[in-house]
Design a binder for these strands. Structure first.
Length: 623
DNA sequence: CCGATGCCTG
DNA sequence: CAGGCATCGG
């Protein structure tokens, strides 16, 4: 398929491929990130409407609908393949119009043709009109649904519509073939639309960016108290972060990520649509049109089975389950960002309307920042721009307070704030991040105010959020589970001592405590279960109850707290487990379980059996 | 009132 | 595992 000039200009390699590859280079982890979970978890319908809702409802659209609405040259091209299959004059595609005059004008030439040709044309125009009309219509958030409905209706009504120059046949196969093809085209057109939108976003972003700069300049001239500025309007430069390049990188990464996300979602939809009957979809045209959008997708984009499969959820599932579940539950679902979305704002007032899905996306980025980088240092974060490098030595003590990074641009004027550490390294303390020290409760309001909810995310803010989110990672969870083998009832002080790399606050503390509460819950449930089982099994004497490493009970517990089984569980834990089981057994034997709070007595006993956690656990880099 | 805890639920 | 809720003690 050929690109029209307008499309080519829209899909400039420098805006697409280059950025994608650049992003790939800078942030390799992103590739997997957006793809893995969220897209795989959407089903085909929802992802598209989700994306469309996100984009069409976006404020940017209303800011300048003309930007989005590419004049006839573009809107009329939303379905060029349909034009071709319907034998529309190729050269007339860009002038395809919905005006009646045009209809009649062209129909002069086509009068000899059978009526159904005109009917076809009318239908195609109708479809196009429907799509075009909804582009600028803020009300119609379900463009995809509508188009699809139209198309399906179209197919039902007219299954004999010729495809691929084949004679019209109305057997079931061609019908499905057509539908698949139509949907493919439709999705591709939406993809183009979204790509356009993405261009607009970056355009508006750039506008805002320069506007903000101007505003900032004005303020610094007229404002007597610069401190009265809204925090969120602190522009990147004022943070002293320094690097335009860093900001640009992030910006570009986000742009390309949006594009790629769209592509992959479309791919996923395709896969779902086409898998039942792959052959019909695998027409030459299909391959062609797939290749037509390389800038949206990684370079390996093709219609090969391998690639399709590699995009599928199956592959995702084949990944380490622990890897996924834990990371996602910890970070993606994390507090405020998702909560903010469901705040009871009237839709039209929602300050982060556009960011409908942005939190998820951004959280994924952050998640991967966390996943791939021990929050102790940035050095191990492959996703971070190259300008962020090695952490300072003192970061091993309290990495959260001295996440160090090298500013390749100007670290000089920041060095004055920097404490210990090699020259050229800048502590995060020097970033003057206003929110870094705030607590989780504030995070939501921050998210609401923040440009983070849009693509206008600044780098320093992503760092803030990174830090906030990096408080507890999957590794921390793993560590906590292992610590449970020693202590069932850790005090907050103990936790603080053993998680030196965590910036403790109310929220983090209670989350950690909650973890242990959950651990205990599981522990006691198992105990009760096995105690009852022992009774059922006819065990009479408490002394007949023992727990060793071969016990089923131990295996269950070990599976829960030491899934990888790479940790030597201390013998003491076995003793405690045995005692606990015996307590439960005794209590149940004596029918104490009729008392609603019968377990509390047991808890009281067990909580005294905590032992010291080995010093090794104090290392932030434990695990 | 706040924090810790437990219970229930998704 | 996290959220929400109720309860309890300081």
């Amino acid at each position: 398929m050929n690109l029209s000039p307008s499309e080519q200009s829209m899909h400039k390699p420098s805006d697409g491929c280059m950025e994608a590859s650049k992003a790939e280079h800078l942030l390799p982890c992103f590739r997997r990130s957006t793809y893995d979970e969220p897209l795989a978890s959407y089903h085909s319908g929802s992802i598209i409407s989700h994306l469309l809702r996100k984009t069409i409802h976006n404020k940017l659209t209303s800011l300048d609908s003309n930007l989005l609405y590419l004049p006839s040259t573009n809107t009329s091209r939303v379905d060029p393949e349909a034009n071709r299959t319907d034998d529309f004059p190729q050269e007339d595609q860009s002038s395809l119009s919905f005006k009646d005059e045009d209809m009649s004008a062209s129909s002069d030439a086509e009068r000899p043709l059978s009526e159904h040709l005109q009917a076809k044309r009318a239908r195609v125009e109708n479809i196009i009109r429907g799509m075009a009309g909804s582009h600028g219509d803020a009300e119609s958030e379900c463009e995809a649904v509508r188009c699809r409905r139209d198309l399906l209706k179209e197919n039902k009504r007219k299954q004999r519509l010729p495809q691929h120059q084949e004679p019209s046949q109305s057997n079931a196969k061609t019908s499905k073939d057509e539908e698949c093809h139509k949907l493919k085209e439709q999705l591709q057109s939406m993809q183009r639309l979204l790509h356009q939108l993405q261009e607009k976003i970056s355009h508006v972003y750039d506008q805002n960016y320069s506007e903000n700069e101007e505003r900032e300049d004005e303020r610094s001239e007229h404002d007597v108290q610069p401190s009265s500025r809204h925090k969120d309007q602190v522009k990147v430069e004022t943070v002293g972060f320094g690097s335009d390049r860093v900001v640009k990188n992030l910006q570009e990464t986000l742009k390309s990520e949006l594009t790629r996300t769209v592509s992959e979602s479309v791919d996923l939809v395709f896969k779902k649509l086409c898998v039942p009957q792959p052959k019909p979809c695998r027409t030459p045209e299909y391959s062609e049109s797939e290749k037509r959008i390389p800038e949206d997708s990684p370079s390996e984009l093709s219609d090969s089975e391998e690639n399709i499969r590699s995009r599928s959820a199956e592959r995702f599932e084949s990944d380490s389950p622990e890897h996924q579940t834990e990371a996602l539950s910890l970070v993606v679902r994390k507090p405020s960002l998702s909560q903010a979305v469901k705040r009871p704002y009237p839709l039209h007032q929602t300050p982060f309307q556009f960011g409908y899905s942005a939190p998820l996306h951004d959280s994924q980025i952050l998640e991967h920042l966390l996943k791939y980088g021990p929050h102790s240092t940035f050095s191990a974060l492959p996703c971070l721009p190259a300008s962020l490098e090695r952490a300072s030595p003192d970061s091993m003590e309290h990495p959260w307070e001295s996440v160090a990074m090298r500013s390749k641009v100007t670290s000089g004027h920041l060095a004055q704030h920097h404490r210990a550490g090699p020259p050229g390294l800048v502590s995060v303390d020097t970033l003057c991040l206003p929110h870094v020290k705030m607590e989780c409760g504030d995070l939501q309001s921050m998210a609401e105010r923040s440009s983070f909810m849009s693509l206008n995310i600044s780098f320093e803010r992503s760092i803030q959020i990174f830090i906030i989110h990096s408080c507890l990672t999957p590794n921390h969870l793993k560590k906590a589970k292992l610590m449970f083998f020693y202590t069932r009832y850790p005090s907050s002080n103990l936790l603080k001592n053993f998680f030196p790399d965590v910036k403790f606050n109310r929220c983090i503390t209670s989350q950690l405590i909650k973890w242990f509460s959950n651990f205990r819950e599981f522990y006691y449930i198992q105990m009760e279960k096995f105690a009852r089982q022992a009774i059922i099994d006819g065990v009479n004497d408490v002394k007949d109850i023992s727990v060793n490493r071969e016990s089923e009970l131990f295996r269950a517990l070990n599976m829960h707290y030491n899934k990888a089984n790479d940790f030597q569980v201390p013998d003491r834990f076995l003793e405690v487990a045995e005692l606990t089981l015996q307590e439960f057994f005794g209590a149940i034997s004596l029918s104490k379980d009729s008392d609603p709070s019968w377990k509390k007595a047991i808890y009281k006993v067990i909580c005294k059996l905590d032992s010291d956690v080995p010093e090794d656990f104090k290392s932030p880099s434990y695990l």
